[in-house]
Every structure is written in structure tokens, then in C-alpha cells.
Amino acid sequence: MSLKPEHYRSALDARADGLWFEVHPENYMGDGGPRLAWLDAIRANHPVSFHGVGLSLGGPDPLDRDHLDRWKRLAGRFEPARVSEHLAWSSLGGRYFNDLLPTPMTQTALDRFCEHVDEMQSALQRQVLVENPSRYLPMRDDIPEPEFLAETVRRTGCGLLLDINNIHVSAHNLGFDARAYLDAVPAGAVGEIHLAGHDSDAGLGEALLIDTHGRPVSESVWSLYEAAIRRTGPQPTLIERDTDIPAFETLLQERARAQLILDAARSREPAHA
């Protein structure tokens, strides 16, 4: 589950089998204080993964070396089970836009993205998982997104963090087939899966779905998740919730539903080579 400050105590005390937590390292880049102390304590009881939102791997600028250094220090201290970042950009010319902005699917962007993924993996001395974005703007893509990701995997040896809600939201917003997208990504490279809820846009309504992480996982996303697990085999799965955060127990229930799907997959033959 996503680790939220309001759940620190519950997370520390939780004993569910196989439970792990994910944090945005950016939220722990202070010099000290109780937030880091909580993460130390929780890390002593549960695996923790790092999911970055600020490196701007999909942007045109060189990576922020100071930010990468802070990443290294935190990863050294907490030894996360997995580390991930996004196919997106968030910084330009020293200005930080705190959102995951769309990387154009072009050859130039692919080359730069691969260099950045390489740089992050070299700095952290480990494999990074790259997450597929939520998309809202229909852009003139030269390369289909699954192909862009597959080529990144091939060139850099990175893994994929498959966000099922993002696939659903993007497919809806841009009008592509979510199942075909699933079939096109390299299933063997998937090392983590995200599940989250979405909302309709306040202005455009159902025409535009927004990846808010503010609601329970939708039925269509659960169904897509089952299809994904059939392709990838059971993978560590995160219930993401960042706004309208419910009680810890409510999130545990969603997590239990994902666990059932994973357990069922484990009892079958592995679906992937």
C-alpha cells in the first residue's frame, strides 16, 4: 500500500502476510525529523519500495544531480525492495512543475529517456522500473507507447511498473484498446503493478478520466488487472491512494482483493516464460 503519514501507526503495527509499503522518496528528502524516523521504524517491519516523481526522466534537461544524490542517500539508508520512476517529465530550465507531464513519443525523446534511465540505474547501481503514464492529451506520437517502453527495456535493461489504472484512463481518454496495450508491452519485464482509482473531469465529465488516486479501484480496472496478471504472472501489487484517504482498514480490504487474484494466479501454471 501507499504509505501515508496518517497511517504511520497502523502501518507500523500491521502484520498482514506479505504486506509492503511504497513511498515517494521526494517526501523524505528533509535533513531529519519524525517523518524519516517513522520510515525507519516501518522499514524495520516491512519491505518498502521507492517510487520517484521528480527526476523528470522523460524531460529534455539533464537530470538534476543534487536530486539524484539525495535519491542515492535515501536508497542507501532504506534499501528499498524496488525503485521506480515515470515515463514523464516535471522540470524545465530549473523550474519544477509538480506533475507528471507527457513525454512526446518521438525518437529524440526515446533516446533521451533511455540515457536518463541508464543514468539513474548507474547512480543507484540497480535496476529501475519505469511506469507508464496517465495521458490526457492526444499527441502526434511517432512511436506507440508500448513500443516506446519495450525499446527502453531492450536498450537499458530496466523493468516496467505497469499501472493498470493509467492504462485504463489513457485508453479511455485517447481512444485506444487497453487489452491490446497489455498484449503489446513486454510482460516479462514487468516487476511491479499499481492499482488506483480515477474520477471524471469536473468540466468535461466522462469524456475525460483523471488519475486522481482518490477513489477505490474501479471494476473495469480490477478486470484489466486480472488480464494483466494472466500475462505477467503474479507481481508485487500496490494499492495507491493519495487523496481522500480512507481508513487503513479500507485500503487493506482492497489489498486483500488483489492478494486473492495473485494467489489464484500462483495456483495456476506461470503464464509467462
Partner: peptide, 14 residues
């Protein structure tokens, strides 16, 4: 850079 006319309104999400 956009594939549809009028799609720029969606930029307001970001």
C-alpha cells in the same frame, strides 16, 4: 504537437 483540434483544452488537467 496535438493530434486533435481543440484538444488543448485538456491541458487544464495538468
Amino acid at each position: 504537437y496535438l493530434a486533435e483540434a481543440g484538444a488543448a483544452g485538456r491541458l487544464s488537467v495538468y
